[in-house]
Amino acid sequence: MTSVLVVDDSQFMRTVIGNVVADHGYRVMSASDGQEAIEMVHDHDPDVVTMDVEMPGMDGIEAVSRIMASKPTPILMLSAHTETGAEATLDALARGAVDFLPKPGGEVTRDLKSLGDRIVEKIDAVAGADLASITPATPATKATAGTPTAASAGAENDDSRSASSAGDRPAPEPDRAFVEHPTIVIGASTGGPKILEGVLRALPVTLDPKVLVVQHMPASFTNRLAARLDTLLPFSVTEASDGQRVGDGDVVVAKGDFHLEVASNVAGNLRVRLTEREREHGVRPAIDVTMRTAADVVSDPLVGVALTGMGKDGAAGIEAIKRAGGATIAQDEASSPVFGIPQQAIATGCVDRVCAADDVPGAICDAFAQEAPTHG
Rank of each mutant, 00 (worst) to 15 (best):
Q11I: 10
V16E: 07
S30F: 04
D33Q: 11
D45A: 13
D52I: 09
I61M: 12
A63V: 03
R66F: 11
T73K: 01
L76H: 01
A80Q: 12
E83V: 14
A86L: 09
A86G: 10
E87T: 12
T89E: 04
A92W: 03
A94L: 13
P104E: 08
G105R: 12
E107F: 13
T109M: 11
T109E: 12
R110T: 14
S114G: 15
L115D: 02
G116N: 04
A127H: 04
D130E: 14
T138K: 14
T149I: 08
S152R: 05
S152A: 09
A153F: 10
G154S: 00
G154C: 03
S160R: 11
A163W: 10
R169P: 07
A171S: 12
P172F: 11
G187H: 09
A188I: 10
I195C: 06
V199L: 09
L200I: 00
R201Y: 00
L203K: 01
L203A: 06
D208A: 10
V213C: 04
F221H: 04
R224A: 10
T238S: 14
D248V: 06
A254S: 12
F258R: 05
G268P: 02
R277D: 15
E280H: 09
G282R: 05
R284E: 11
I287Y: 07
I287A: 06
D288Y: 01
A294T: 03
V298H: 05
S299I: 13
V305S: 02
L307V: 04
M310Q: 01
G311H: 06
K312T: 13
S336P: 00
P337E: 04
P342T: 06
Q344F: 15
A347G: 07
V351Q: 08
D352T: 12
R353T: 14
F368K: 03
Q370V: 14
A372C: 11
H375L: 00
